[in-house]
């Protein structure tokens, strides 16, 4: 155990993150990178991008509140050190996604009203369930909720967004790549630290399983809301991609993600693949640390 915990050092984080994949970046992307004019000049795509970015900010604000709260709950200093680095990671995510809202034309004085307008209420409830565990002082449930459920969802959602942005919006894709790299450490900590703690506290399993089931329900409800409103923007994005490809004398490519052709799959298919992928990951990750995955009820 001592060797395992000794990996969580500030020096290692510095070498991997600021001196590694974030070196020479500005707000998570290459200096001079910008949102594509095809997005900024298109009302449908612009509003869709603002709405998507607000969900990312809402999720990251929750992660920042949870990880900072968990620092003082951690039972050992190695975990406190790791959670301190995670707190800075999450604060950076809040900052870079907020900066993206500004890059999309949202005025600074309109930030909070924009977040209030677009933040999905089911995502807010998802966050509240986690933050209740943290404010109750429950370290194990807090880390499972934060580093396995929330981060596991973010990891997969960011991968999907990165795959859809790679060709048309390399600035946003690079921003997402850096957050995905951060999430690797976070899910790793969640599994590795809780994998040992849960065996010492088997009485926690039932409560954690109920929390996972409830958070999963609100996650699926968020997906349902977001995808039910996204048909027009998905079609518009494909039209723009086709036009751009024609201008360049090529084709828009065949971005595939977990078996779905992102260039032709219906919105319902993409939502289904995303939900199945995230829930499958929950099942695998929880199973590895001795917690039984609980299927959530399906939102109406």
């Amino acid at each position: 155990m001592a060797d395992f915990l000794s990996q969580y050092s500030i020096q290692r984080w510095l070498e991997m993150c600021p001196q590694g994949y974030l070196e020479d970046t500005v707000y998570g992307h290459a200096e001079g990178g910008s949102e594509p004019p095809e997005l900024l000049d298109n009302e449908v795509l612009l509003e869709s991008s603002i709405a998507t970015t607000v969900q990312l900010i809402a999720g990251e604000r929750c992660a920042l509140a949870a990880s900072s709260g968990l620092v003082n709950l951690a039972p050992d200093f190695a975990s406190k050190r790791f959670l301190a680095t995670q707190t800075l990671d999450e604060a950076r995510h809040v900052e870079i996604f907020t900066q993206r809202l500004f890059d999309l034309g949202v005025a600074k004085e309109d930030l909070e009203s924009t977040v209030d307008r677009y933040a999905n209420p089911n995502l807010v409830r998802f966050a509240e369930i986690l933050l209740e565990k943290v404010s109750d002082g429950d370290f194990i449930a807090g880390v499972v909720g934060q580093n396995i459920v929330l981060e596991g969802m973010a990891f997969t959602v960011f991968e999907l967004l990165e795959a859809t942005s790679r060709d048309l919006n390399p600035k946003f894709a690079q921003t997402l790549s850096g957050t995905i790299a951060d999430e690797r450490r976070h899910v790793g900590f969640g599994e590795n630290r809780i994998g040992s703690l849960i065996s010492e506290h088997p009485e926690k399993r039932g409560e954690i399983e109920r929390m996972q089931q409830e958070m999963s329900y609100y996650m699926l409800a968020t997906f349902a809301d977001v995808f039910s409103d996204s048909g027009e923007s998905v079609e518009e994005g494909r039209r723009v991609a086709n036009d751009l490809a024609a201008e360049r004398g090529g084709d828009p490519g065949d971005a595939a993600w977990h078996g779905a052709d992102l260039g032709s799959a219906s919105v319902e298919e993409i939502e289904g693949v995303l939900a199945d992928t995230v829930l499958g990951e929950f099942r695998s990750r929880l199973g590895r640390i001795g917690i039984e995955y609980q299927s959530p009820s399906v939102p109406a």
């Binding site: 991997m16 690797r184 450490r185 899910v187 790793g188 900590f189 599994e191 590795n192």
Partner: peptide, 8 residues
Amino acid sequence: YCMPCMSR
């Protein structure tokens, strides 16, 4: 050993 997520 996976250094990116620190798993063994």
